[in-house]
């Protein structure tokens, strides 16, 4: 299940940000996106996750394969850790949440309401969610925000375990996770001023 991006152009709020972007992400590999703020990392990740359409270009192999983790944790503060995780497992048609709790050291917290967790613990829970989706391609947007060094290590080993079973990961992060993977700098793909095509160009 290889993710193949061909000649992708993206817009954010109607303004083109990235153009002519192509890459492939093979099973067992991780791809780390780099680039200054505003270059379009989040836009690219949301597009790969299917949340927004690209301006042009093709995305192959992403359909029903992507688990997405954005800036917000997506947790219900009134539910416990187990309830949160079990809900997403059910939504994705999975059963077992034990490995996810274990991998992110949440066993001791499993009965605590998510509202009582610290920011880092919430983040760990949000990342543990990726493990219960059963999806092959993890798309992670700044996953290590508010994680301490130990938690970052937990996260890195979880991603490595995922890669080892033939999964893939697409990450936007500035931290070196020591992952087996490639780095893609988005800077060179910054969209140029659009060329006039004489029709709708004035609106883009």
């Amino acid at each position: 299940m290889t993710l193949r991006i061909t000649d992708l152009s993206l817009a954010r709020g109607g303004v083109p940000v990235l153009a002519g972007l192509s890459f492939t992400l093979a099973p067992g590999r991780a791809l780390i996106l780099r680039g200054p703020n505003g270059v379009g990392k989040t836009t690219l990740l949301r597009t790969v996750a299917g949340l927004q359409p690209p301006l042009s270009g093709a995305i192959e192999g992403a359909e029903d394969q992507v688990a997405y983790c954005g800036h917000s944790d997506g947790l219900k503060l009134g539910l416990t850790v187990t309830e949160n995780l079990r809900f997403w497992a059910q939504i994705f048609g999975q059963r077992d949440i034990e490995p996810a709790l274990q991998a992110f050291a949440l066993i001791g917290l499993h009965n605590r309401p998510a509202g009582g967790l610290s920011a880092g613990q919430k983040r760990r829970l949000a990342l543990a969610r990726m493990m219960v989706t059963g999806r092959r391609i993890w798309v992670l947007d700044e996953p290590t925000v508010s994680l301490d060094a130990a938690s970052v290590a937990l996260f890195a080993s979880a991603v490595e375990a995922h890669l080892a079973t033939g999964g893939a990961a697409l990450l936007a992060t500035h931290i070196d996770l020591g992952l087996q993977g490639d780095v893609l700098d988005l800077g060179p793909f910054k969209a140029k001023v659009p060329v006039s095509d004489g029709f709708d160009e004035v609106f883009l």
């Binding site: 109607g14 969209a191 001023v193 659009p194 004035v202 609106f203």
Partner: peptide, 17 residues
């Protein structure tokens, strides 16, 4: 409305440049 959109687009383009 078209002219207003053009102004918006031109402003956005300036930012891009």
């Amino acid at each position: 409305e078209i002219r207003q959109r053009r102004i918006q687009a031109l402003v956005a383009r300036e930012k891009l440049e």
